[in-house]
Amino acid sequence: MTTTDTPSTTQAVTPELRRWIIDQAEAGFAAPVILQAMIDAGWREDTAAHAMEATLRSHLAQATGNGTGSDMPDGVEVPMPALDDSPLYIDVGDRQVHVLQVMTSPRVVVFGNLLSDAECDALIAEASPRMKRSLTVAIKTGGEEINADRTSDGMFFSRGETPVVQALERRIAELVRWPVINGEGLQVLHYPPGAEYKPHYDYFDPTEPGTPTILKRGGQRVATLVIYLNEPARGGGTVFPDINLTVAPKRGNAVFFSYDRPHPATRTLHGGCPVIEGEKWIATKWLREREFT
């Protein structure tokens, strides 16, 4: 039994590709057969696996009533680190970033050695004088507001504001293969003992009245990179409740995750665990569909 030709060999995950994957599954082809057909047609294995699993998961959710055509937005292209052949390291030009853990569905990658100790110290020092109670996007209006679920202090750097920020933004762009201009300004957050950020999604809810205003600045968020700038004595990990994963806050490391649509089916629910002892400093980089202005 052979599958039909794929509609395209481009690496963009298009609606046409998702329709083709569903057609193959409904025709009775097993997932490994569909995956191999995509690889044979020129798709990178990591892109093919991610596209296939995300598409079939969403299709199953709709078929079983856990998602419907009205509340399941179309998927879009997302940042994608080069993870073919299970690399130990990714060369980003000015350093070798370690690949410590990879999950395909949802796409979650833990990186090591993204920042040096000196760069971590510099970001904390540059951010410290500007820290204020953290705000979240006000989904009702498109502005900002204090959220009781987020008990940290924070600030934003403008894109390319300092040499360290500029170097990090170039590094991230190379690492996840996404333009620098599509990134929001780097946010630095400080969590004292007891502070946390309860589980939430980073995308903007399409059903909220403020979302159209937010999306004018660069479209939806499609990926997040959380970077650990220090190591709390206890607590402070990043938890993904839907997949039973907790990432330890190791200095210089980062966790990356992408979401191809603003919907819980992406399983990207995540939160910052309470700091039990010590303090936690992180930097967060959100990536948009288009240029962020």
Rank of each mutant, 00 (worst) to 15 (best):
F111H: 03
S116C: 11
A25P: 01
Q36K: 10
S152E: 02
N113D: 09
D121C: 01
I39S: 02
V102T: 06
A138N: 11
S152W: 01
M80A: 15
I34M: 07
R234C: 07
H200G: 06
G154A: 12
M38Y: 00
P249Q: 10
F157M: 09
E119S: 06
L135G: 07
I124S: 01
R261Q: 07
I21C: 05
Q36N: 09
C273P: 06
Y203F: 10
N230L: 01
P206T: 13
G75K: 00
R95N: 14
V102H: 00
R19M: 01
G67V: 07
R261Y: 06
R288M: 04
M1G: 15
D91M: 09
W281K: 13
S134N: 03
K132T: 01
A12P: 04
E161L: 07
A233E: 09
N244R: 13
Q220V: 00
N147D: 10
E279S: 08
A127T: 02
V164M: 04
C273W: 03
G237H: 08
S152T: 02
S258W: 00
Y191P: 01
E119P: 03
D153I: 14
D74L: 09
G65M: 10
I172C: 00
L56S: 05
G210L: 04
T293L: 11
P209Y: 11
N230A: 03
L56T: 03
A223G: 04
A41N: 04
E208F: 14
D5N: 14
M103F: 06
H200P: 06
A223F: 04
G112M: 08
L175E: 03
L100R: 15
T213I: 11
V255F: 00
S128P: 15
T2C: 15
D149E: 11
D202Q: 01
I139Q: 14
K198G: 10
H270P: 14
V110E: 15
E144T: 15
G219P: 05
V165Q: 11
G219F: 00
T213Y: 01
K285W: 09
I276T: 13
K198Y: 11
G42V: 15
N113V: 08
L215D: 05
I172L: 02
L83N: 08
G218L: 08
R159M: 00
V164E: 03
I22S: 05
S152M: 02
I39L: 04
R261T: 11
G272I: 02
G67K: 08
T213M: 05
L123M: 06
E45L: 10
H50V: 15
S158N: 14
D71M: 13
A254Y: 06
D149Y: 11
